[in-house]
Design a protein around this nucleic acid. Sequence first.
DNA 1: TTATCTGCAAACAATTTGCACCCAC
DNA 2: GTGGGTGCAAATTGTTTGCAGATAA
Lengths: 158, 158
Amino acid sequence: MSPSSDQFLSQPDRAQLRSRLAQAGLRATQQRIVILESLLVLPGHPTAEQVHRRVVLETPTISLGTIYKALDSFVASGLIKRVAAAEGASRRYDADCSAHHHLYCTDTQEIIDYCNPQLDLLIQEFFAARGFQNFQPRAFSLHITGEKVDAAQEIKPL
Amino acid sequence: MSPSSDQFLSQPDRAQLRSRLAQAGLRATQQRIVILESLLVLPGHPTAEQVHRRVVLETPTISLGTIYKALDSFVASGLIKRVAAAEGASRRYDADCSAHHHLYCTDTQEIIDYCNPQLDLLIQEFFAARGFQNFQPRAFSLHITGEKVDAAQEIKPL
DNA sequence: TTATCTGCAAACAATTTGCACCCAC
DNA sequence: GTGGGTGCAAATTGTTTGCAGATAA
């Protein structure tokens, strides 16, 4: 996270968000800019409702339907992804499309990004050695369930 | 899979299903027995609808509501699990609660079980060496997306 | 200018709930 | 016998759709 702590739309600023939308071939409307910004800023991979709750603070007239339509078009263009989750009723989204893994906190329902290139390599090498019989893999992602703990607490091996 | 190919309820027979339900502390009703059997037999991790479609063949008066209630109680008791999925609108369930991974076929939407103790060990060792800072892991599961292919086709490394 | 997006409201789909009756323990 | 389960229908929740007016390119 970069500095600045005051108002909305500070660090991933409008110009950056605009170009991100443009690169994905999407029209950079006010609504989409704020929606994308919320996806980047909200922790734990938000639902449409959670995005809406944040976005109305800035753009009070925005409708939930617009959130759904924007999220659909973001996913269709590859700008964001739907997150695989076993819990909950609502769809959740991830603005980070680079390869990474997820930590599922059973207490808070948060889904936390976990990136570890060494682990990726380890798994890739494993599959290169003994791969699959009737399946062509394209990508993989590790889902680790557990609980968030204080920095102070001891963490036991799995 | 064991032999026999005639009618429903052959290999995981009623007695076994009964005791599985009993062990989970659930009443072994006719409906629950057939629902649990369908979960074990249907490929690719079914939705409530898919379970219902199979179960009505055997028990025509069973209602979709009963399927939902049964699935809820199965999950609550730990008999089955909800499956993490990024695609689709409906919840999907897994009757196998032992540690295993999933192959997500982007063509058929099937979710195929993948079990590999060597891989599990490799990942466990990796986390034992350099684990997490603020997260206590309890379990992990690898999600591999790709496509099913014929046995004949060549499979390329990821 | 014009194709696309937005906001609203209605429609839809998936899941849950309430309740009278039934059945496994 | 009785507490929990079933079936039905109605209610709720999450998401999609249709369309008239607004707006980015």
